[in-house]
Simulated scan of single mutants.
Amino acid sequence: MRIEQITEKFQIDVGAPTPTILSNEHNLYLIFYVSNVDPNWDGTTIHMRTEDDEGIVTVKFDRFAQFKFGSPNDEAISGHPLYELGLEPYSIQKVIDSEWIKELIKMNSVHPYHKDELFSKYEHFIFFFHDRCFEIVAEGYSIEEKSELNMRAEIERISKLL
């Protein structure tokens, strides 16, 4: 098992990315704030996020098998079972040869029509935020190109799709 770093055109906000999950049994959307530093910021003030702040990304996962959301946060990352493999905060990673996928195959093996190859398209992704860690086993993900500018509007848009 190993960790592979994934680079996207954005950086996860290190302060308050406010990850939000919207899902039904077929699709899952992960919405969060990305780094958007004001070039005139002098470092002496703190900006408290509101749902009207701009600078979000929406990630769509198709055909997911399972997801986890919660602990550890960035300060307890060394307690994550995959930390020793190079897990990093504020990043997106893929777990190669995932034990979690092997567990899902084993759980499903009692199904009368089970075939291991049905799980061959699944990948294990980790989106590590400031206060939360999001892990998912899915066939992949895509970045929504037509997302709204702020969290409130994007949640409304995605809710209509589900």
Rank of each mutant, 00 (worst) to 15 (best):
Q11S: 11
I12S: 00
I12H: 00
I12Y: 01
G15T: 04
G15S: 05
I21W: 07
S23G: 06
N27W: 03
L28N: 00
Y29E: 01
L30C: 05
Y33S: 02
Y33V: 00
V34Y: 05
V34R: 08
N40G: 04
G43N: 02
T45V: 12
I46L: 11
I46D: 07
R49L: 09
T50V: 08
T50A: 06
D53V: 01
E54H: 03
G55W: 02
I56G: 00
T58A: 13
T58E: 09
V59A: 04
V59I: 15
D62E: 15
K68H: 14
F69S: 07
F69M: 10
G70R: 13
S71L: 15
P72F: 07
N73S: 14
N73R: 11
I77P: 01
S78I: 12
G79R: 07
G79S: 12
P81V: 08
E84C: 00
E84I: 00
L85N: 05
G86I: 06
L87H: 02
E88I: 03
P89K: 07
Y90S: 05
Y90N: 11
S91E: 10
S91H: 12
I92H: 12
K94L: 08
K94M: 13
K94I: 09
S98C: 05
E99T: 08
W100Y: 11
I101V: 13
E103W: 12
L104K: 15
